[in-house]
Design a protein around this nucleic acid. Sequence first.
RNA 1: CGGGGCGUAGUAUACCGGUAGUACGCGUGCUUUGGGAGCACGUAGACCGAGUUCGAUUCUCGGCGCCCCGACCA
Length: 415
Amino acid sequence: MRQSKLFTSTRRNAPKDEVVRNAELLIRGGFIHKEMAGVYSYLPLGLRVLHKIEQIIREEMDAVGGQEVRMATLHPSDNWKKTGGWSSVDVLFKIQSRTEKEYALGSSEEEIVTPIAQEYIGSYKDLPLAVYQIEQKYRDELRAKSGIMRGREFGMKDMYSFHADQKDFERFYETVKQAYFKVFERCGLDAKVTEASGGAFSNKLSYEFMVLTDAGEDDILYCGQCTHCVNVEVAKHAAGDTCPKCGKGKLKKARAAEVGNVFDLGQRYPKSFGFTFKDKDGKDKTPVMGCYGIGTTRLMGTIVEVLSDDKGIVWPATVAPFSVHLVAIAGGNADVTAEADRVYELLCENGIPALYDDRDERAGAKFADADLIGIPKRLVVSEKTVSAGGIEVTDRSNGSSTLVADSAIVEHLRM
RNA sequence: CGGGGCGUAGUAUACCGGUAGUACGCGUGCUUUGGGAGCACGUAGACCGAGUUCGAUUCUCGGCGCCCCGACCA
């Protein structure tokens, strides 16, 4: 895409009503636009990142057998009354129509997915089933905070599974946990899985996927020597204690952001809707259910928190809005502009997603913008590079730069 | 929801009981062109309401909005 056509632009000043890094950088870069506390719009660059995150999640959920759906976000109040959520879920947004009919805005989708599954699942032969969706969620938080880390409207992937028995659920639960690690790793993050309380969902333990960052809201204890990690809310130990799992490491306390979670829901929701299936013995049984969430927008915010420096964002290639940022430093030289145009076409023809800074700006402004936007590879075409017979390729993460011949650029970028 | 802070051009800020200045942005022109260019001219602003006052953007009260700490967190 030509940057001259991109309707957003960068800002030099940090917004005064945002303090956290993710909001500051994403707003300055033109990725997002704040509508009100806890509600943001996603602009072209931001949406490209979000789509890439969603696609990674989609691939991993498909890989464990999840079937993607798109459920309603405007919910009938009856479903919530059946499960008791209408009165017990305090973050539920409730709205009323002109005719005083009541609705809920989806904060989670058990109330919707369970009746859908009930309609199609009649036999043990139909189980297990896993369905997921990626869409907006609404929660009436008392206090939105930390930019896109905790909003009242946010993006979430939520998957729900139904099983003939607890054993089959446990098997799938473990499979999803492994898939989650792949998702976070592909997004460039090092996630830890922690034991936590099940909250209002379940009286069993749940597992949360945590990424260390001061912008998080949870305190966790983790072992430096093994994978042991617990949320302090359920911890039976303290910082400095010897790890109860490996017996070697010391427990460390740290702030972390919860980017995903998995819950053992048991039979609560199927029971609320009278959802049963015929088992092998011909008897009616209630399925066992699990749910699995990943906050897509929070994940994006966490990536920015963890992967950024004093100049801007440093996107991992897997989620970057474009693979390369082609910067023309023409200074009015038509030959340089023509060469940069040619390189841009070459990238397009070869399917390499590129943001092409063809604007009439000075080098310093273009470099500052490129650093802020954070695309992994910066390609510079200038009088210098043209006379040297190549293109300057600079790595955003470490600043290293090399001159690559035009003829080799496509191959170089594909490495 | 408790506590604290803050609302001034598009963005970030300053001053002031007598209707607002700067920087960036934006527009025009000239010069400039590898790390946020210079000059000139221009553009654009006091959250809402009430009160005090001759006069309120400024002081007081109320509302709304935003941020932070805490609580909460399907």
